[in-house]
Design a protein around this nucleic acid. Structure first.
Length: 374
DNA sequence: AAATCTCTCAACCGCCGCTGT
DNA sequence: GACAGCGGCGGTTGAGAGATT
């Protein structure tokens, strides 16, 4: 046959032809829908009722909105998903013109990856603990070892710096590099622990002093978005027996997370992912978030620590190449150099930029009841 | 230019809950 | 209460398009 359609029990499967679409549209326009089981027969279609219903609901319905998701829609999806989980039909009910199938696909192919890339667990909507642990160790090791600022490690610092955004991306990439195509598949426990102990136990890291105490004090600490968390927790508390774990995670976040985890911009990422030109956006280069890392020094540290030791293809993990990682990070993320507008909560000229801020503005349907259902 | 890989998304599948008998 | 029919939902699949080698 010329296409992938198959016929079983006289019923056709696979992609719909324009002729079939027209038959279904004509029939529904004439008679309306309702009895899906009888529609195919009456409309002269060799399809099951279910297939007709799906085709109509996901594709032929006149009120379906086509085209890419807007930033606002994406924020709404993330916000609703943080409250409702994989209740795609409920989420779709809050996004006029979008179908549950479309939202589900968009979530799985775009948002999930994006959140993961940003160090956020797409299931819990909290920063990933693996990244947090790494970030925390790095933060401790790199920032707190010595107040001296004139250490040799810093001597070569000019204008070439790595900001925390890059560092977070770097950590995120490191943790996900084992499974480029599967964001669900994080570094396995052994490898992860090995990496952690390499970082925390490394003389290289422990002996590297970093920013002055004054600089450290100017770095804001992570504050989870309270309203969002509250709403989420209210709902979780009523329905989720794992609430204790949720609380534990939350307290870990508040105590441990470094500013790294707050320094990203969902909006810029969205613009970048959608091919928009973001080069004109301004950057608060004076932000306290800009940490003093020499990329070349960092490069050598990471290559020494990771690239030449245990992160090798031989053990099933790709080589960790900071140089390429940084270049890919800076080229694939709008957060670098002149593209980012936000680094930390409350330090931006446009707070909407920070993930979670504008999300909170999204008005969840008034129809939501106590259990989060419509 | 061809082969291979990766990504996207329309469509399918199986399960569940509701309703009528 | 048991059963069947139906619609709806969420998870999964696989063809086709696009990207990469």
């Amino acid at each position: 046959m010329t296409n992938s359609s198959t016929e079983k029990n006289g019923l056709k499967k696979g992609p719909w032809t324009p002729e079939e679409d027209q038959k279904l549209i004509d029939y529904i326009h004439k008679h309306g829908h309702g009895k899906w089981r009888t529609i195919p027969k009456n409309a002269g279609l060799k399809r099951c009722g279910k297939s007709c219903r799906l085709r109509w609901a996901n594709y032929l319905r006149p009120d379906i909105k086509r085209g890419r998701f807007s930033f606002e829609e994406e924020e709404a999806i993330i916000q609703l998903h943080s409250v409702l989980g994989n209740k795609w039909s409920t989420i779709a009910a809050n996004l006029p013109g979008r179908t549950d199938n479309e939202i589900k696909n968009y979530w799985n192919t775009h948002i999930k990856k994006k959140l993961f890339k940003m160090g956020i667990d797409p299931v819990t909507h909290t920063p990933r603990l693996d990244v947090l642990q790494l970030a925390s160790i790095l933060n401790t090791s790199l920032f707190n070892s010595s107040p001296q600022f004139n250490h040799p490690f810093l001597s070569g610092i000019g204008r070439s710096v790595i900001n925390p955004t890059h560092l977070l991306s770097l950590l995120s990439t490191l943790l996900s590099c084992q499974s480029r195509n599967n964001p669900d598949n994080v570094l396995n426990h052994n490898n992860y622990q090995q990496t952690i102990s390499q970082l925390s136990g490394s003389n290289l890291l422990q002996n590297q002093p970093q920013c002055s105490q004054m600089q450290l004090e100017t770095i804001p600490t992570f504050q989870p978005n309270q309203p969002q968390v509250s709403l989420q927790e209210n709902l979780i508390a009523k329905s989720n027996p794992l609430n204790m774990e949720h609380q534990l995670i939350k307290s870990k976040l508040q105590n441990q997370i470094s500013p790294l985890a707050t320094s990203f911009s969902l909006q810029n990422l969205w613009h970048y992912d959608n091919g928009d030109n973001i080069s004109g956006l301004s950057v608060p280069q004076s932000s306290s978030a800009m940490q003093c890392f020499s990329s070349s020094k960092f490069n050598s540290i990471f290559n020494n620590l990771l690239g030449n030791q245990n992160l090798s293809h031989n053990e099933g993990i790709p080589n960790f190449n900071l140089t390429s990682l940084l270049s890919s990070t800076t080229s694939s993320s709008p957060l670098n150099s002149s593209s980012s507008t936000t680094f930390f909560n409350g330090t931006t000229e446009d707070e909407r930029d920070t993930y979670g801020s504008n999300i909170l503005m999204y008005n969840i349907s008034n129809g939501l009841n106590d259990s989060g259902l419509l």
